[in-house]
Design a protein around this nucleic acid. Structure first.
Length: 462
RNA sequence: UCCCCUGUAGCUCAGCAGGCAGAGCAAGUGGCUGUUAACCACUGGGUCCGUGGUUCAAAUCCGCGCGGGGGAGCCA
């Protein structure tokens, strides 16, 4: 049996077809009954048309039970559609109800619903246009990520999800334990982590970077793409407690190579979206974010501008009074600053580099000036930062100094430091939040709508 | 974590100078039409988030709690 996507694309007029899917709408007229059947294989469904006069008893009974949401099997002949809404349609001979859908209790109606409401029915929302399209695009973008790296010889490395080192330094972590916490609390005794599963405290990973660097210094070009976890108490449209991150890492690569890879990557992904997600993208452009396609097109075609942090601050200082947070050299760039740089100063994507070392992580390579590090943030209009990365510090002594200067204990970093002891080499990488990418590419503003089952503060119902 | 907004029918919302609970959509019934966010008519549908208070009287005003949304910070 072909799915509806294939029927619409490939089936020839006159052929006998059986389609299975769910009723999106049913429209009854005196002469004909129309059912739009959608099986999720594509944005568009298949219009099934029944002659209202010659209906068999079985078909009439089945049709009366074919409410919005019901699962059906419909058989008939594919014909050219006499009406303008679609090229082809199914002239139906028979219909059977596979799964009923009571109209009085089914939450999804033949009308628009708010995204807030749909979040409360996460188990049913993939049946809607918006969430269905987002899910298909999520799949396509994941495929594009692997395709991009595979084409360029990057190896996919599965970095661990559970980590016993709390040194990743990218935010609050979720602890993983199989100690009996209830019993511990009752006993009033402190937890003895030597008796915990791993013999020490363990957490869910906040980043695969430190691990993937080990493989970069062995296989050369690698990337990781998997779930990461942050226990931050942040309630915004751009944060999740569980999200997917893409982190390439490649050896014998310095900051300019890293910037070039990031630019090529973004353009590849946007190009993929436009080539392979036409129907879904058209829907988002029409109903969710007008101008979306034009924006993707623009980013894809524009050369990314480059600007040092120092120059960026100079630009910001010219408009100092218009910001809530006054910019100065040494300040962290605020959301408003990033948006201003990409949207007003450059009018397109811009990569800001060479940030003060105090603002960035310990592993970034120190510049000759001793004050800045070889960091890069890729800023795009409407969203701000979409990629953050750097050339890594590959000199043992300097890295050790950086760790100490940040007030960190070098001990747990012993294996990370050893990478710099044994055959160290310059290497670079960046991180891209997969859901942030999807937010950009779908135009959906709330990150909870681009992941099937969002995990956020006080949110893990489904 | 901080700031702002918000909670009324299945959904989206109006009603809030305190005085009978409303509309559109959805659903049901009927009509009409190759319909396609169908159209027309009628019908059914309410713990006004919970709790305490003010008052003759609270959906409306006040306190507390819970839920939702937006912004900030943190970040991806």
């Amino acid at each position: 049996m072909k799915d509806i996507k294939n029927i619409l694309a490939e089936a020839s007029v006159g052929s006998a077809i059986t389609a299975k899917g769910w009723v999106r709408t049913k429209r009854e007229t005196k002469n004909a009954i129309f059912i739009e059947l959608n099986d999720g294989s594509s944005f568009n469904g298949l219009q099934c048309v029944f002659d209202a006069h010659g209906l068999s008893k079985e078909n009439a009974a089945a049709l009366s039970r074919s409410n919005t949401g019901a699962a059906l099997s419909v058989s008939g002949t594919l014909i050219d559609s006499p009406a303008s809404g679609q090229a082809v349609e199914l002239k139906a001979d028979s219909v059977t109800v596979i799964g009923e859908c009571p109209a009085d209790s089914y939450p999804l109606q033949k009308k628009a619903h708010s995204l807030e409401f749909l979040r409360e029915i996460a188990h049913l929302r993939p049946r809607t246009n918006t969430i269905g399209a987002a899910a298909r695009m999520r799949d396509e973008m994941a495929y594009a990520v692997h395709s991009f790296f595979h084409e360029r010889g990057f190896r996919y490395i599965h970095t661990p999800i559970i980590t016993a080192s709390d040194c990743e330094g990218a935010g609050e972590m979720f602890q993983v334990t199989n100690l009996d916490l209830d019993a511990l609390v009752k006993s009033g005794q402190p937890a003895d982590y030597a008796k915990d599963f791993f013999g020490k405290k363990a957490y869910l990973s906040v980043s695969g970077q430190l691990n993937v660097e080990c493989y970069a210094l062995a296989l050369g070009k690698v990337y990781t793409f998997g779930p990461t976890f942050r226990a931050e108490n942040s309630n915004t449209t751009r944060h999740l407690a569980e999200f997917w991150m893409i982190e390439p890492e490649f050896s014998f690569a310095e900051l300019p190579d890293n910037m070039a890879l990031a630019e090529e990557f973004i353009k590849y992904l946007f190009g993929w979206a436009m080539e392979r997600c036409g129907e879904d993208l058209a829907f988002f452009d029409k109903r969710v974010q007008p101008g979306l396609i034009a924006m993707l097109e623009e980013v894809k075609n524009k050369k990314f501008a480059h600007m040092s942090y120092t120059d960026a601050v100079k630009e910001l200082e010219k408009k100092s009074s218009s910001f809530e947070f006054k910019p100065y050299w040494g300040c962290d760039l605020q959301s408003e600053h990033e948006r201003y740089l990409t949207e007003s100063v450059i009018g397109g994507p811009v990569i800001v580099t060479d940030y003060p070392k105090e603002l960035k992580a310990f592993y970034m390579r120190l510049n000759e000036d001793g004050k800045t590090v070889r960091a890069m943030d890729v800023l795009v209009p409407r969203i701000g930062e979409i990629i953050g990365g750097s050339e890594r510090e590959y000199r043992y002594d300097v890295l050790l100094e950086n760790i100490k200067a940040k007030g960190l204990d070098p001990e747990p970093y012993w294996w990370y430091l050893e990478l710099r002891k044994f055959g160290s080499a310059p290497h670079s990488g960046f991180g891209l939040g997969f859901e942030r990418l999807l937010r950009y590419v779908t135009g959906l503003e709330n990150i909870r709508d681009v992941i099937p089952f969002p995990r956020a503060v006080k949110q893990a119902e489904f």
